[in-house]
Structure formats: C-alpha cells, structure tokens
Design a protein around this nucleic acid. Structure first.
Lengths: 143, 143
DNA sequence: TATTGTTATACTCTATAACTATA
DNA sequence: TATAGTTATAGAGTATAACAATA
C-alpha cells in the first residue's frame, strides 16, 4: 500500500448506516435480477400479495414511494401481467396479483428470506432483536 | 383509519436498514443545505481536510464513488474555490482545501457531529458500540 | 500493459408541478 | 375543498464504455 488514508467518517454510525444499506441493497438487487425485478418492484409485489385489493396510494404511502412514481412502477408490473388494477371507486385503483404474480411473489419471498439470513449471519445472534429495534426507531417517519 | 395494512416486510432488518438509511440521509442533506453541499460533497471535503494532497482516485475508492463521477463532483468544489487540484505526477491530481474549504469543512464537521448525536439519541446508549460494529460488518466490501 | 483522470451517455430513483376525475 | 391517480419533467446518484496521457 502506498499510504494509509485517514477516514474521519469512520467513527460515525450515520456513515456506516449508509454504507451498510447500499451494500445490502446491491446484494438484494443482484438476487432479484434473475426475476427481472428491482427492490422497489419486489416490495410492492410482496405488499399486494399480503393485502389483496389494496389501493395503490396505500402501497405508496407505506413504502415511501410518491404517487407520481407509483404509476409507472405499477404499470410495468401490469404490463408483465403480474397484477391487475381494478376500480374501487371512481378515483381509486385496487391492486390484485395474477396467478403469475403470486408465483413470482413466492420466489421473491424465498430470495428475500435468504438475503435476510445472509444479513443476520454478520450480526451476533444475541443482538438481532436490539439491532432490528434500533433500525426501526431510526426509520420512523418523524425520525 | 380505513384499514390497517399488513406489511410483510416489517420483520426484515434489510427493509428497515434501507428505511433508516434513507431517513438519516434525508436529515443530513437538510442540515447541509444551508452550506449548499450534498452528503457526497461533504464527505469528500472532510476526507481531503483530514488528508491534505490526497489523490482524487484514493478519495473515490474509499468512499465508493466511481472515478467518472468524482470528476464533476470535485470540479464543482473547485469552481466554488473550496479546493485546488495540483499535479502529483503526469496523471494524478492531489487535492488540497483552500482557506474557504477549511472553514466550510469546520462547519460541516459541526453539522455531522450534531447529526450523529441525533442518531445515537434514538439508540439505547448501551448498544451504541454493538450497533456501530454491526453496521461496519454489513458495509464491508465483500459484504 | 496498467493506471489516472476525463468525457459522454444512460438508467434508476426521487421530487415537483400541473392536470383530470371524483368524493 | 380534498383526494387518487396520471403525466411530464428535472435533478441527483450510479454505471459503463471509450479515450488521452502517463507510469
């Protein structure tokens, strides 16, 4: 090595939080690639799978995806015949997975579960609960 | 409330890792806004501050920024007279902060330290060390 | 031949504003 | 008046390929 660089960010949990998230998301994206799904699409698929006929806006609010960005995302899944939009009332769409959508959601679940195990492997088992709780409190809406 | 939505992602640390990171980065971006700096620019500034004459490529490698993306980032900081590029050899640039760059780096440090405190406030003090260690192991290059 | 930096390009994610239709 | 969804657009982050200059 030519020279060791001093990294003043190394003591900051915020810095490592970002790095950890980026690394894990890249891994997940790689595991979802064979299904031609990106993480955001996969999360929408799982959410609809668990909540048949959920409204599009409710999915976006829960996942933090703006409604303007939900439209093309859901349209893409509809084009692939993974889900169907159906009218709930004049202005709302309910989302429901097709048979192919349910099948793909099952594959996604397996991939996500495997990914979760690979994450938890790197954290001491005794700290799993506290680690998850810390992340949850940091991700809450107000902060 | 109309209906409680079942969130099958709620049990996953990967999901909350991403949410926590997004929320914290948004907070940091907000705190850096008065300095007209985005988080990536601020991290480059702090790294140069701690490593005078560091090569541009070394900064990028450490922070995970591709060299093609370092060029416009550093150019922007140079345009603002926060740093100067100087030749180390025929193909390398060393980066050094100007007086204004050092002054801004000092402001950035304060903001980052305050942000770090606001993060740690939400994690029980007894878990700070373990939390940071877990994040570090998740962010390591191989994963 | 490998490395440093640059340019151009493209794709994803995110954010905003303006709009239609409906409650 | 507020809500649900759409459209268009723009910015930021990230990724690759091609290139020049240099080691």
């Amino acid at each position: 090595m030519a020279r060791t660089i001093n990294n003043p960010l190394n003591a900051f949990s915020g810095y490592h939080l970002r790095r950890a998230s980026s690394a894990c998301m890249a891994e997940l994206a790689h595991e979802l690639e064979p299904m031609s799904l990106r993480p955001a699409q996969a999360s929408v698929l799982l959410l609809i799978d668990a909540n048949p006929d959920v409204r599009q806006g409710a999915v976006g609010r829960l996942l933090g995806i703006a409604s303007a960005n939900m439209t093309p995302l859901v349209s893409r899944l509809e084009e692939r015949a993974l889900l169907r939009r159906h009218r709930i009332d004049g202005r709302s769409h309910g989302l429901r997975l097709s048979k192919a959508g349910h099948a793909l959601a099952a594959r996604v679940k397996k991939a996500v579960l495997a990914h979760e195990q690979s994450i938890l492997k790197r954290v001491p088992a005794a700290q799993h609960t506290a680690f998850l709780a810390a992340l949850k409190s940091l991700g809450e809406d107000e902060g």
